[in-house]
Amino acid sequence: MRNRPESASDLSQGQNAYDRLLNEIRHGTLPPGARLREVDLAARLGISRTPVREAIRRLEADGLVEHLPRQGATLRRLSYAEVMELYEMRAVLEGTAARLAARAASELELRELAGINAEMTASTNPEDIVRLNRLFHAALVNTAKNRYLQRAIAAMGRTLLILGRSTLFDPARIATGAQEHEELLRALQNRDGTAAEAAMRTHIEAAHRIRLRQLREAGFLDSHAHEDGGDVPI
């Protein structure tokens, strides 16, 4: 039997399913190693299997899903080496974005960044703080005005979703994160690209340390993982 062509409704539902699954991955509802069964997901999301299949294909293209023998589509687990490499690349890419933003950002864009960070500092709601932090970083990347850098950061960001909940859900990280944003903003306002890049790298490295501590406390970073690069069930 020939597969019927996808309708506009399928495509719209596929986008919706993709967005919802991404959100579940971001919040840790779908953890690494979770099996993505089309029938189960279709029933849970209240749609047919066709858009679910399309959403899973897109997640696989993003590098978030792999097909394992006897399991099928499964949310990837990242190795210890991959976690290290991701944060190294994040520091490089977002550090570059900060350096470019110091040159290219308009005064209006800098005021917008300052406003987002002020909201983040004033908030006591962890969900809002995480949302505002995500907005701050996205706005900063936009001010760099380099579409190729934007695409590279977006692709890396999708892989980072496998790590689950933001490190900003750690209470100790909230205050320091906002302070690091302030250092970055001062460098941007002074049009100091070198200082802006250094401030962003410091910010990302601090988040990296928190992430590794969380994984270590959860028992995921043992000596075996360091020695052979084995899977880290994040």
Score class of each variant (00 low, 15 high):
117 N>Y: 11
131 R>E: 01
94 E>L: 12
82 E>D: 11
89 M>D: 09
115 G>Y: 13
129 I>A: 08
79 S>C: 09
117 N>A: 13
98 A>F: 11
94 E>K: 09
118 A>V: 02
93 L>K: 05
114 A>L: 09
94 E>A: 10
99 R>P: 00
104 A>P: 04
105 A>S: 11
109 E>H: 15
102 A>F: 06
77 R>F: 05
134 R>Q: 11
93 L>D: 13
100 L>A: 04
122 A>G: 15
87 Y>F: 15
121 T>D: 12
130 V>I: 00
107 E>Q: 13
80 Y>H: 14
80 Y>W: 11
97 A>V: 12
93 L>F: 03
117 N>R: 10
79 S>T: 14
133 N>V: 03
92 V>Q: 14
115 G>H: 03
94 E>V: 12
85 E>F: 05
99 R>L: 01
80 Y>V: 15
80 Y>N: 13
87 Y>W: 04
133 N>R: 00
83 V>T: 11
89 M>S: 08
88 E>L: 06
79 S>A: 14
115 G>N: 03
99 R>W: 04
129 I>H: 07
110 L>Q: 12
99 R>Q: 08
127 E>R: 06
109 E>A: 15
104 A>N: 12
126 P>G: 00
130 V>T: 03
106 S>V: 09
80 Y>L: 15
104 A>R: 10
109 E>Y: 14
76 R>M: 04
75 L>P: 02
74 T>W: 01
100 L>M: 09
105 A>E: 02
96 T>L: 14
75 L>Q: 06
102 A>G: 11
103 R>W: 04
135 L>G: 00
87 Y>E: 03
113 L>A: 13
78 L>W: 03
96 T>W: 15
116 I>S: 02
133 N>S: 07
86 L>E: 06
121 T>C: 07
127 E>V: 11
118 A>W: 01
123 S>P: 05
91 A>L: 00
84 M>K: 02
126 P>Y: 00
104 A>Y: 09
104 A>H: 14
85 E>I: 03
96 T>N: 12
110 L>M: 11
